[in-house]
């Protein structure tokens, strides 16, 4: 995070000029952004999550996520009596407004932010009958809302429950990893608004990205590794009871 502040000091004048382009939409992406130079993912530093729900709110605002559906959400796990196979999990309104206060000394509690894992061998894109959802050349699983039939087969195929049928558009909707932001040099809305740095956008193709050092030195894991989806949302310090 210090890194970004240094960035700012160096980039300040340039950033101001670039800002107009950011708001204007595509031009900057077309000119400066090369899809082949990126391979996006996410680092979720789980022990840092305080369950404030800022990410869920920011995501809903940034992406006009309809009420009752979630591109990202936060779960609160409660493992009682060391029974890891039976965690009590809640996610009231996706954790958007935070969580009820948890009682002291009642076992282990922790929060787990969830989102699309942007799998590289994604089972959802595999089953799409028409090619309306795909892994982009820079590693983001996207949905083409102009081509989607709304058959919901991909919703069934996602092991993580990250997709839904948009109640008005009647097409599939999901996390785009804020593709409209990351291609313009910004981070995702959830990362931007996370107060503790529990979420960090990572570019696995960028050799300077701290993710490489992080993964070398931390016990990281992906969700449901047995599904072999090539998930790119890396969780640091994930509890074994998390599904």
């Amino acid at each position: 995070m210090n890194l970004s502040r240094r960035h700012f000091l160096v980039l300040a004048p340039a950033a101001a000029i670039a800002w107009k382009a950011v708001l204007a939409g595509t031009p900057e992406q077309a000119e400066n952004y090369k899809m082949s130079e990126h391979w996006w993912g996410m680092l979720i530093d789980d022990p840092k999550c305080i369950g404030c729900g800022n990410c869920v709110k920011a995501c809903a605002t940034e992406n006009d996520v309809p009420d009752g559906y979630f591109r990202t959400w936060v779960e609160r796990y409660h493992v009682e009596d060391e029974d890891m196979t039976n965690p009590q999990v809640i996610s009231p309104d996706g954790g958007k407004e935070g969580f009820p206060v948890a009682a002291e000394d009642a076992g282990k509690y922790f929060f787990v932010p969830k989102m699309c894992n942007h799998c590289s061998d994604s089972p959802c894109t595999q089953v799409c009958p028409v090619g309306a959802t795909f892994v982009s050349p820079d590693g983001v699983v996207l949905v083409d809302p102009k081509y989607c039939l709304g058959c919901a087969y991909c919703v069934q195929a996602c092991p993580y429950g990250c997709r839904y049928i948009h109640p008005e558009k009647k097409t599939v909707d999901k996390c785009t990893l804020c593709y409209h932001r990351i291609t313009k040099g910004l981070t995702t809305a959830c990362c931007e608004s996370c107060p503790t740095g529990a979420r960090q956008l990572v570019d696995l193709k960028n050799p300077k990205d701290p993710i490489h050092e992080f993964l070398k030195t931390h016990p990281a894991q992906v969700l449901k590794p047995q599904m072999a989806t090539g998930a790119k949302a890396y969780y640091n310090g994930l509890d074994g009871s998390v599904r």
Binding site: P129, V130, C148, L149, G150, C151, Y153, K170, T171
Partner: peptide, 28 residues
């Protein structure tokens, strides 16, 4: 029943025009 279930039934011909080879449903 499939047509009625689709969010966009008018797009179902896409299944003939651009069938996705890895999708069991595209075979339909």
């Amino acid at each position: 029943p499939l047509q009625l279930h689709l969010g966009h039934p008018e797009r179902s011909p896409e299944m003939y025009f651009t069938p996705h080879s890895t999708s069991a449903m595209a075979m339909f």
